[in-house]
């Protein structure tokens, strides 16, 4: 044992003191492994390991989310306000754009056809005057307010405005949520 350590010391002493593990610490220095050097090396080693594994993991995860989303256009024209009678829920744009045009007493709003529970498409039941989701039974009033079933919040409304010719324009990428009191925003409805 003693001989071994002697040999080790001798080989160590032939190295120049600056030589080490390459990280600038003194773990390979003439004095052998110091406590500080060991800890520094461990910290540096594990930090490098964690950083590389974490970085790789983040890269792999990020790769799952593409940069470009090929969504069809989010804006469309929905005709003139006079096309919609008072109190009507129009399903005209449901299939193509996923929007119900609802004409309430004093305003026209564009209601999303995506159920706020789990994304199914509710049906408008004219006789019962409500939207009813076939997946889990959520019910919404004409205004989009949720009143039965598991839906946690009202149906979303989209930005709606009148263009220069007096036609309705709808932009689906701007959303107004009732539970956040965003429905009072003038962009979320057209007075009519």
């Amino acid at each position: 044992m003693r001989d071994d350590s002697k040999i080790k010391n001798e080989t160590a002493s032939t190295d120049s003191p600056t030589q080490g593990c390459g990280c600038g610490c003194k773990c390979g220095s003439r004095d052998g492994v110091t406590r500080l050097g060991f800890i520094t090396c461990m910290v540096a080693g594990w930090a490098t390991f964690t950083a590389s594994v974490g970085g790789l993991g983040a890269m792999l995860l990020r790769f799952l989310a593409p940069n470009v989303d090929y969504e069809p256009s989010q804006s469309f024209s929905a005709g003139s306000p006079d096309d919609y009678t008072r109190g009507e829920v129009s399903t005209r744009w449901k299939d193509k754009y996923g929007v119900w045009i609802v004409r309430l007493e004093d305003r026209i709003v564009a209601v999303s056809t995506v159920c706020t529970h789990l994304g199914c498409t509710p049906n408008w039941l004219e006789t019962e005057g409500k939207f009813k989701c076939p997946c889990h039974g959520s019910g919404f009033r004409k205004t989009g307010d949720n009143f039965e079933g598991p839906a946690p919040r009202p149906l979303e409304r989209f930005k709606i405005w009148l263009n220069d010719e007096g036609g309705l324009e709808i932009n689906k990428s701007i959303v107004f949520r009732g539970e956040k009191d965003e429905w009072s925003s003038p962009e979320s409805y057209v007075s009519a």
């Binding site: 995860l61 799952l64 989310a65 593409p66 989303d69 090929y70 969504e71």
Partner: peptide
Amino acid sequence: RTSDAKFMLLGDTR
């Protein structure tokens, strides 16, 4: 919409 778990699962918003 374009950065949550659903988007990563589907690679799309729809």
